[in-house]
């Protein structure tokens, strides 16, 4: 098993390298740089000044040199200074928001799982029942309704009309600490969490349903019944673990979907996470911030996949030994 995990981590390294190259190249391919917009905005400033600034920022260096500068300092957690927020480092901007996005992602994944897995199991045990059809319909509705629209509906009813949940932000009184502030954070996370979480529910539910159905029809389930196992043991011991194996793989894939959904959801709820920062930085051409966030999201996806693979090897002994 350790061999497998080590091998898997070794694959992680070239992928990380490829990721940095892609992020860097994409940033270069984007038209203009941090100073392009400003020269148009203010025709009174001598273009010479911008040229000097470019030189000073290293924007005129050959690309490989620029890449090396960026990557080597990024490796030490230094993404440079923001071009827009004067005097603040990129790391400083990102730090607080990173945690917010991570919490939102985990919370919505939690919601996805506690909703979809039980419904998927139930649908598989009673295929073509009323609840099965209902869940399928509900799931496709969830797939069809865009995330931001669902978010707006949730804000309108649950926040504005009923006033149950705050519609934006992460905290009502900044600076509060302790358990109260934890609950406050959770309270703020409910609407964006549900919005983001329900988006993934349909996929997981359909997967779970078909996996459980598949496993229930397998030979080893017949064996378990033939040796007198009760339905509970058949379902929770023999079926569930096998059915979850592909779900873990799915989770690895879906992390990217989750994070891109987070970017939009955060925007709808004005939730101060990486997503909102990312969008404002793109608009402001704050390239160091854009590159840093793209890299971090990419790394999160890679780590998610790595964790999924490791978890997979724990659940499925066939992966562990070879």
């Amino acid at each position: 098993m350790y061999k497998y995990i080590i091998r898997r981590i070794l694959v992680f390294i070239p992928m990380l390298f490829a990721l940095t190259v892609i992020v860097f190249t994409l940033a270069q391919l984007a038209p203009g740089d941090a100073l392009t917009g400003q020269s148009l905005a203010d025709p009174n400033v001598d273009p010479e000044v911008y040229e000097q600034q470019r030189e000073a920022l290293g924007l005129n260096d050959p690309l490989p040199v620029q890449y090396w500068h960026w990557v080597s300092s990024a490796a030490q957690g230094d993404f440079g200074d923001s071009l827009v927020f004067n005097g603040r480092t990129v790391m400083d901007l990102i730090e607080a928001r990173f945690a917010n996005t991570l919490y939102l992602g985990l919370f919505s994944l939690f919601i996805t799982i506690i909703v979809s897995i039980p419904i998927g199991i139930y649908s598989a045990r009673r295929p073509y029942s009323l609840l099965d059809y209902g869940a399928t319909g509900f799931g496709f509705l969830g797939l069809a309704i865009p995330n931001f629209f669902f978010g707006l509906i949730a804000i309108y009813f649950l926040s504005i009309q009923l006033g149950w949940f705050p519609a934006q932000g992460t905290l009502s009184s900044p600076g509060a600490a302790g358990f109260g502030s934890f609950l406050d954070r959770l309270h703020h996370m409910v609407l964006p969490g549900i919005t983001l979480g329900l988006a993934g529910t349909a996929t997981y539910m359909r997967y779970m349903r078909s996996e459980v159905l598949d496993v229930l029809g397998s030979d080893y389930i017949r064996t378990a019944r033939a040796k007198g196992m009760t339905e509970n043991s058949v379902l929770y011991k023999h079926t569930l673990r096998n059915a979850l194996i592909p779900i873990i793989t799915l989770m690895g894939f879906e992390i990217g979907v989750l994070l891109s959904g987070a970017v939009i959801t955060e925007q709808v709820f004005q939730y101060p996470g990486l997503g909102t920062l990312f969008i404002s930085s793109v608009t402001n051409r704050d390239f160091p911030v854009v590159m840093a966030i793209a890299l971090i999201l990419g790394v999160l996806i890679l780590i998610g996949n790595l964790l999924a693979d490791i978890f997979y090897s724990i659940v499925d002994p066939r992966i562990r030994y070879d």
């Binding site: 080893y220 064996t223 033939a226 096998n242």
Partner: peptide, 14 residues
């Protein structure tokens, strides 16, 4: 008790 034709799939892999 019962045993089956396909020993490859009759035991739970996990």
């Amino acid at each position: 008790a019962m045993i089956f034709q396909e020993p490859m799939t009759a035991l739970n892999p996990v």
